[in-house]
């Protein structure tokens, strides 16, 4: 782990010189919202501690991905549209979310080749987050807002400069052959306790976790009442940094047929519709229950951690004011009794 101090003012220059051969993705304003997007002009880029509206998951797992195509002679071409990418300014909650995506798509018996290729070609540069938006509850999910090691390079905010922490070899390769001195921040002294002081000092609130038998949560909670307000749109799943459900679609394009992968959402009735016409999750109650249970119970059973990072995006964008934080606290109260 090499430590370098980089002046905050020079960060764009640094990225420009790093960006050789890479597509740069960073937060930028679009229609009044801060989103991750491809940066063509460095002036567009916004370096801030604000959590962007969308998570960067679409750069690893795009909403629509062309997977392969088949021609009339029986030939199959596997498509790869990934590019070498630097994703800059990812906040710890989104970085933690990568763990979940990786666990599902890139670990265990089956790997998703498209996701894995993109993952290999993408370098994440993390940054701390200082602005708590309404609905953020990362602290209650046990996530350190100031630091995460689930990235390749992390820029630790030291007031007037960033301390560069290189975490992976991939991250190191980015800096190889680069004269960092150019960007160096001169008067550097590292107070030993700097790292500690950046930890959240406020009282650690009770973690939002569900520790109970699947059946208990499934049956003892009044899901009807909890889901009453839900409209059944899929905004929460589309904006969630850890949601990863998808569907396949075969389409015809001129004389080829192409297999696409598109995001799907457990909030849609068609998601579980059987060919027979039967739908095991026919109402919003079952669908909302699935979403909460998947995040807080099922993934935990399989992977050992909860698949919600407390980024609060689903809460902020819900048109009906559904709030997963209050839902989970209510469930915890029910279970406590």
């Amino acid at each position: 782990m090499s430590l370098e101090a980089i002046s905050k003012k020079r960060i764009k220059e640094l990225l420009e010189s790093l960006g050789e051969g890479y597509k740069l993705v960073a937060p930028a304003w679009e229609d009044g919202k801060l989103v991750f997007k491809e940066i063509k002009n460095m002036d567009e880029m916004v370096i801030s501690h604000e959590l962007p509206y969308k998570s960067p998951k679409e750069f690893l797992f795009p909403q629509l991905e062309r997977m392969m195509c088949f021609d009339t002679t029986g030939g199959v071409t596997v498509e790869d549209q990934s590019e070498k990418t630097i994703v800059f300014g990812v906040k710890p909650c989104d970085l933690e979310a990568l763990k979940v995506l990786k666990a599902v798509l890139a670990q265990g018996k089956f790997h998703d080749a498209w996701f894995v290729t993109r993952m290999e070609k993408t370098i994440f540069i993390g940054m701390g987050c200082s602005s708590e938006k309404p609905g953020c509850f990362c602290a209650q999910r046990g996530i350190n807002r100031k630091y995460s090691s689930t990235c390749d390079v992390f820029l630790r905010d030291m007031g007037d400069h960033y301390k560069v922490e290189i975490i992976t070899d991939k991250g190191r390769s980015l800096f190889n052959g680069l004269d960092l001195k150019k960007f160096k921040f001169e008067e550097v002294s590292y107070p030993e306790n700097m790292a500690q002081s950046s930890r959240p000092t406020d009282e650690t609130p009770r973690l939002l976790e569900i520790d109970a038998e699947e059946n208990v949560v499934f049956n003892q909670v009044d899901w009807d009442r909890i889901a009453e307000r839900c409209l059944g749109c899929g905004i929460c799943t589309y904006l969630c940094p850890t949601c990863h459900c998808f569907a396949f679609k075969d389409v015809k394009e001129k004389d080829l047929s192409v297999r696409y992968r598109v995001w799907d959402s457990c909030m849609y009735p068609k998601f579980t519709l059987h060919a027979s016409g039967h739908n095991p999750r026919s109402t919003k109650k079952e669908r909302f229950r699935q979403r909460v249970m998947h995040k807080y119970v099922y993934i935990k059973q399989n992977q050992g951690y909860t698949a919600c990072t407390g980024c609060g995006r689903c809460i902020r964008s819900c048109p009906a004011g559904m709030n997963i934080k209050t839902v989970v606290s209510e469930i915890m109260e029910v279970l406590d009794e």
């Binding site: 059944g232 899929g234 905004i235 598109v262 009735p269």
Partner: peptide, 30 residues
């Protein structure tokens, strides 16, 4: 994401036309 449909008072069909498979009105692409 079909939020407009979900929020609309007038879109209460049990099966929306876009969710039909036969005929498939809406290919699920972007």
């Amino acid at each position: 994401c079909f939020s407009c449909r979900q929020a609309c008072y007038g879109c209460y069909c049990k099966t929306c036309f876009i969710e039909r498979d036969v005929p498939n009105w809406l290919p699920q692409d972007l």
